[in-house]
Simulated scan of single mutants.
Amino acid sequence: MKNQQIATVFNEIASLLEIKGENPFRIRAYQRAAVNIGGLSQDVAAMGDEELRSIPGIGPDLVGRIREFLGEERVALHEDLKKEIPAGLLDILRVPGVGPKTVKTLYEKAEVRGLDDLEMLIRKGNLAGLPGIQRKAEENIRKGIEMLHRGRERNPLGKALPIADDIVRKLRAKAPLGKIAVAGSIRRWKETVKDIDILATSARPEKVMRV
């Protein structure tokens, strides 16, 4: 089942496009597609083009990208973007709490190209004061880097996602739910996950809590 891999690629495409300052509508299209594909219980490889287009946010262009990945295990746009953007910026995106807008600022305003550059910037006290980055944000980024370095305390997304999906399936089968969705780090397609967060609505929450 390639859903997770495709969702990860689409999410990275969105992040790289945002770092480049591309069209926000195009960025959101890839973000939405990543979320919806990642949340599918059906394997996209078994779906026809019409079924794929029925997924919210998936149009003909994204159907083509999905087919491209299924056939070649890669998406040319993704590979091209990775050549344009320093690889180290994707490492910074893995820092909890750091998004593409912050990475774009770091790259354009401070010539940060990777985690080493970012840590040096923090040690010199030059991070706070960059556009949109205050002292509190600097402290959060510093803590996020420490958390990333302690990655062994977290689980790989590939290990956590199947567990989360299994929990969702069991809750759907046994509990009176309205809506249910995976949230937190898994929802944001972070490379590592500490906790599995699930959001649900129900007219009988007390019964859900007993499942």
Rank of each mutant, 00 (worst) to 15 (best):
V112Y: 02
E73L: 13
F25K: 09
K159W: 11
R172E: 12
R135S: 07
M120N: 15
F10C: 04
N126T: 04
D165V: 14
V103W: 01
H149W: 10
D117F: 00
E84K: 12
P56I: 07
V75E: 06
V208E: 09
E73H: 09
E206L: 14
P100K: 08
L52Q: 04
T8A: 15
M209K: 15
A200W: 10
R188G: 06
L40I: 05
E51M: 08
R152T: 11
T192D: 02
K143Y: 12
A110V: 03
G178I: 10
V35Y: 13
D195L: 05
R67W: 05
K170M: 14
R169F: 11
G39K: 07
L199R: 10
G125H: 04
A203P: 13
V182G: 01
L93M: 13
G88Q: 07
D61R: 13
L171R: 07
L161Y: 11
Q4E: 15
F25H: 15
A29L: 10
E206C: 08
E138P: 02
K83S: 11
I58N: 07
R123Q: 11
I85R: 05
I186L: 05
E108P: 07
I180Y: 05
L89R: 03
V44C: 01
V35E: 12
R67K: 08
L90R: 08
G48R: 04
M1V: 10
Q42R: 14
T201E: 04
R65N: 08
E191R: 01
I167S: 08
E84Y: 05
K83M: 14
A87S: 14
V35R: 15
A7E: 06
H78L: 10
V44W: 01
P205G: 08
I27E: 07
I37D: 05
P131D: 00
G144E: 07
L148A: 07
D166H: 14
P96T: 08
R53G: 10
V44H: 01
P131N: 04
K190H: 01
I198T: 07
I6A: 04
L62C: 04
E72K: 15
K174H: 15
E153Q: 15
G88H: 02
V95I: 14
G57C: 06
L52D: 06
K136N: 05
K207N: 12
R123C: 01
A76P: 09
P24C: 11
L77A: 12
L81T: 06
L121K: 00
P100I: 10
L121F: 03
N23D: 14
R65S: 11
L40Y: 02
R28H: 11
R142N: 04
G129T: 00
N155V: 14
I145A: 03
L93V: 13
A45N: 05
R53F: 08
A45E: 06
D117K: 00
K194F: 14
F69M: 02
V182N: 01
D195F: 01
